[in-house]
């Protein structure tokens, strides 16, 4: 177990639910905290009778949801001005980014819900959702559902597998990676097919 995770687990044992909320919240704000590992470990502690598993799930979910929502608003209010200032306006104004924004708006539910399973995708989607000015109420609804499901899944790993949690959680992480790569592949194939249909329609209309 790495040193940072050991420090965080000590912190959670000392300050209990408050520390768990803090770790989940800060990790959702893109700070480098191993939030998922901390939640799995806290659930293992609950399995040993030290915490209440219901409270672990509730507090961790609230931490994640709060961090995600604040990240969304920061991106929505300050995202574009900051990115323009540091010279990334070409990226924001590019066709690819415009397409990504439109896809996130059209498939917002699926994108936001599925992105909760992987921390890097979560942070990226939070930022893009803010930049694309997705409805804040819809975003909140999706993150409440998505984060609760995600926390329940990873908490159950800690609660039922106990001291094997690191191994089982590692396998779960690889499984979500496979899932995401597969989803990205399906997305790319669907986009390719859609573009081919558009080109075909244009060619037919020109004739």
């Amino acid at each position: 177990m790495d040193v940072i995770l050991q420090q965080i687990l000590s912190f959670i044992l000392l300050y209990k639910y408050l520390a768990l909320f803090g770790v989940a919240f800060l990790a959702s704000l893109a700070l480098p905290f191993p939030s998922d590992s901390a939640i799995v470990a806290a659930s293992a502690f609950a399995g040993q009778g030290y915490f209440n598993i219901g409270l672990v799930i509730l507090i961790a979910s609230l931490g994640n949801i709060s961090g995600d929502y604040i990240g969304y608003w920061v991106s929505r209010i300050y995202g574009r001005p900051i990115l323009y200032k540091i010279g990334l306006h070409k990226v924001l104004d590019s066709k690819v980014f415009t397409w990504i924004e439109s896809e996130v708006r059209v498939h917002s539910g699926v994108v936001v819900l599925l992105s909760r399973l992987n921390v890097f995708v979560t942070l990226t989607v939070n930022i893009v959702a803010g930049l694309s000015r997705m409805s804040s109420k819809l975003f909140l609804l999706y993150i409440v559902i998505g984060e609760t499901i995600q926390v329940i899944i990873i908490a159950s790993i800690g609660y039922f597998f106990g001291s094997n949690w690191q191994t089982i959680y590692g396998i779960f992480g690889k499984f979500t990676l496979v899932l995401f790569l597969f989803a990205a592949l399906m997305f790319a194939l669907a986009h390719k097919k859609a573009m081919e249909r558009i080109i075909e329609k244009r060619q037919l209309s020109q004739k």
């Binding site: 177990m1 050991q6 293992a44 399995g47 040993q48 009778g49 609660y159 039922f160 597998f161 106990g162 001291s163």
Partner: peptide, 11 residues
């Protein structure tokens, strides 16, 4: 409890 804990697990 769902998670057994051994003396050797103390860290």
């Amino acid at each position: 409890t769902t998670v057994p804990f051994l003396v050797s697990d103390i860290q």
